[in-house]
Design a protein around this nucleic acid. Structure first.
Lengths: 216, 216
DNA sequence: ACGCGCTTTATACTAGTGTTTGAAACGGAG
DNA sequence: CTCCGTTTCAAACACTAGTATAAAGCGCGT
């Protein structure tokens, strides 16, 4: 019997990574323990031993991926201190897309998050609080700057969601979007261009939205 | 043995409606034939008889829901002929949100579509061509008007996706969005306000985006 | 009443899934 | 070498899910 600790990776870590891939491809319910363990080169009982059951494996995967992503793309709450709000928004959009489209170790994380958005699991709540709320607050502050004085936090927040919504949409619907517009690409070289578009669109929107009255 | 055709609905139709609900709640793989048939008040073999298998039931559900939605919210390719482009965009966003958040007979359709966006099935392609491409074309035309002359179709199209992305995002991520901003509501009374916001944000964006240069 | 096509039903079958369990294997310390 | 805690393994188990099938039931026309 060969000890399965090749590549200096523990079985536990291999399971986390592999499960992440499988869960992101197939979703929680279509993914099977046998598929995950087969790909990870481990025995099916390893899930029970290391995680207890499938649900806890899933929760551990979410936590693990979020941590890896935060290591690779740290959330810098004070970035761009000397920059104009336009530049800050642009940089923030680029960072956001970098996280979403990132091809790092846990490049499957965004795929998994897309599934979570549509059908949130219990494991998502702490992740949202830790990683997503701070980024949203950051964006809200930038949007407030762009919108000018007398802008309520609520106004800025709903605009911030409009910005986030674009980033998220282009990623999660990229198959359909690509079908509807074959000229739109989502490779690594295309992300800066997409960030450019979203930033410009959003800057133009936030700077001018208050001038657009209610249209009936 | 009681004939199960109460409410003048055929078993087939009841299965379609019920399956739509169950698939939208649970997704294809977590939904079971027994759950669907249990709720529909029919025997599990009815799926085999009327549809052949689970996948064909799913495909039939998608088609059925799309047709119902198109009946309830017809795609009017020429609406707003005499209106200003701002008004047309506003109306189009309202209609789009009406489809997405609609509480009609197939109110579960948008939920199902959210799942399809993230993980498209084979059954989606014809639906996209029939129902989504015409609407996108319509939106692109309006966006071109707003952006002014010398606007390429590609420029307008990517902006159109930015508009669509907001509508889609607010719906599919409403659980998370609601958690991050409890003041944002998504009840029937809130949809007009949301349409208002998205329209204004998008109008401001499209009218001004060309003035926002590349920001590095 | 009978025949016929359609629809529904009860039931069986098979494959697959998550989980458990006891034993073997492993590695490190004394 | 032995002991001990940790890890891995093979195999079993109970249950579920999709699917198929033959027979019964139904409604309509002759």
């Amino acid at each position: 019997m060969e000890r399965a600790d090749q590549d200096n990776q523990t079985t536990r870590e291999r399971l986390l990574m592999t499960a992440g891939e499988v869960f992101s491809e197939l979703g929680f319910h279509h993914a099977t323990i046998r598929e995950i363990c087969g790909r990870a080169g481990s025995n099916v009982a390893a899930v029970n031993y290391h995680f207890g059951d499938k649900e806890r494996l899933y929760a551990a995967v979410l936590e693990y991926a979020d941590q890896c992503t935060n290591e690779e793309h740290p959330i810098d709450v004070d970035f761009g201190a000397g920059l104009a709000p336009e530049q800050r928004l642009h940089e923030l959009v680029r960072r956001l897309l970098g996280r979403i489209f990132g091809a790092g170790r846990t490049g499957w994380y965004a795929r998994l998050m897309a599934r979570e958005l549509v059908d949130p699991s219990e494991a998502l709540a702490p992740v949202v609080e830790r990683s997503y709320r701070p980024q949203l607050q950051q964006l809200v502050a930038i949007v407030q700057d762009l919108m000018g004085d007398e802008t309520s936090e609520e106004e800025a927040r709903v605009c911030a969601f409009s910005v986030v919504g674009q980033c998220v949409f282009f990623h999660l619907a990229r198959t359909i979007v690509g079908r509807l517009d074959p000229q739109l690409r989502f490779g690594p070289e295309d992300i800066d261009r997409l960030a450019d578009h979203i930033a410009r669109f959003s800057i133009a929107a936030t700077k001018n939205v208050k001038r657009e009255g209610y249209v009936s």
